[in-house]
């Protein structure tokens, strides 16, 4: 019996030996401005593995590329609801937890979630959420309690929405008391009708860089990512962020290894590297997004750790909801309504 165990262990170690000869390269496919250069340099210095980074502006883009079979990436950064879909469609490689000892540093609150039971495919990276971004210089922030405050007539022509159907619908569904992940067409239609009432107040849709529109003073209130409020507030002090009582829409970004990655060993090394407390803290400090690494949080400068835009209190996150995967059918419905919202805005001569 003992012999058998030994043989099994040896056999299990074989692929390891093979992987040890992996080329010293890691192809990282990441969101734009979502990994500090210093961290990549430190990793290369320590391991000799050169990181080649490519960027995308939307998870859908990354998904489409992997799905179409292209890329040659070793590590991608999907949001949680894409992890679910990608794992189901066999686009991800299972992780070897034995090579990720630093996973223990991650806050257990964010592990073993329904989108990836047992973290078989993904490790948590950073967290962001969609709430109300507001310019305190123009709006009485203390008067804002609910998502529905956006519909107030005083904000006519001053509202910013992101240009993403999914997140915006999730918000309006929550405002109406439904789940952010509700797929009932009747509820989505109700959200669409509610959103239609908001459109006349909308000054612009800007999904790429909402902070710029706030800094330029074009808009005074809007629905956007908390990171936009945080980064914007570095330039314009009056910018802040409100957690509506119906709850913010949470999105967690994770890191995962795509199926057929050529350097899975290096990818594991990198994952473990960025889960070290001091590295995770460095990332959060540089990017202004919340790290999910409990040990890293302890190392954060007080100023950042106490910044409620980046690190909400439990009270702030009451009623918050994580985005989950939705059927293609529902995504299509969102997109159709989204086109309709924008067409309804302008009926000139047609």
């Amino acid at each position: 019996m003992k012999k058998l165990l030994l043989v099994t262990a040896l056999l299990a170690a074989l692929p390891l030996a093979a992987q040890a000869e992996e080329e010293k390269v890691l192809n990282l496919y990441n969101w734009t401005e979502y990994m500090p250069k210093e961290v990549l340099k430190a990793f290369t210095k320590e391991t000799g593995i050169k990181v080649k980074e490519s960027n995308y502006a939307a998870t859908e883009e990354m998904y489409s590329k992997l799905k179409a079979g292209g890329g040659g990436y070793d590590l991608v950064v999907p949001s949680t609801y894409f992890v679910q879909r990608m794992a189901r469609e066999g686009l991800l490689e299972p992780l070897d937890h034995a090579k990720l000892p630093n996973l223990k540093n991650v806050d257990p609150k964010f592990l073993d979630k329904p989108f990836d039971p047992g973290n078989k495919y993904s490790v948590p990276y950073l967290m962001s959420h969609v709430g109300i971004v507001v310019d305190g210089g123009k709006v009485d922030v203390s008067s804002l309690k609910s998502w529905l405050d956006l519909w107030k007539p005083e904000f006519k022509g001053k509202v910013l929405l992101m240009d993403t159907a999914r997140e915006t619908f999730a918000v309006v569904q929550k405002a109406l008391g439904y789940s952010a992940n509700d797929t009932d067409p009747k509820h989505i239609e109700a959200a669409f009708n509610k959103l239609k009432e908001l459109v006349p107040s909308v000054k612009l849709f800007n999904g790429e860089s909402p902070k710029v529109s706030f800094i330029q003073g074009e808009v005074s209130i809007g629905i956007a990512w908390n990171g936009e409020a945080f980064m914007g507030s570095q330039e314009k002090k009056s910018l802040t962020y409100v957690y509506p009582q119906e709850g913010v829409v949470l999105a967690m970004d994770t890191m995962a290894i795509p199926k057929g990655a050529k350097h899975p060993e290096n990818a594991h090394k990198f994952l473990d590297f960025i889960m070290r407390p001091e590295i995770a803290a460095k990332i959060s400090e540089t990017l202004g997004y919340a790290t999910l690494n409990a040990e890293a949080v302890k190392l954060l400068p007080k100023k950042l750790a106490s910044n409620r835009i980046v690190y909400p209190t439990d009270e702030d996150l009451k009623n918050s909801e994580l985005l989950e995967d939705i059927p293609t059918e529902t995504q299509g419905l969102y997109e159709k309504y989204w086109s309709e919202l924008k067409v309804g805005k302008k009926v000139k001569g047609g």
């Binding site: 000054k203 989204w338 086109s339 805005k345």
Partner: peptide, 14 residues
Amino acid sequence: GGSKTTLIGNLIQR
């Protein structure tokens, strides 16, 4: 235009 109007190009891209 602040992306307020869906044009054919947007429609196809989306």
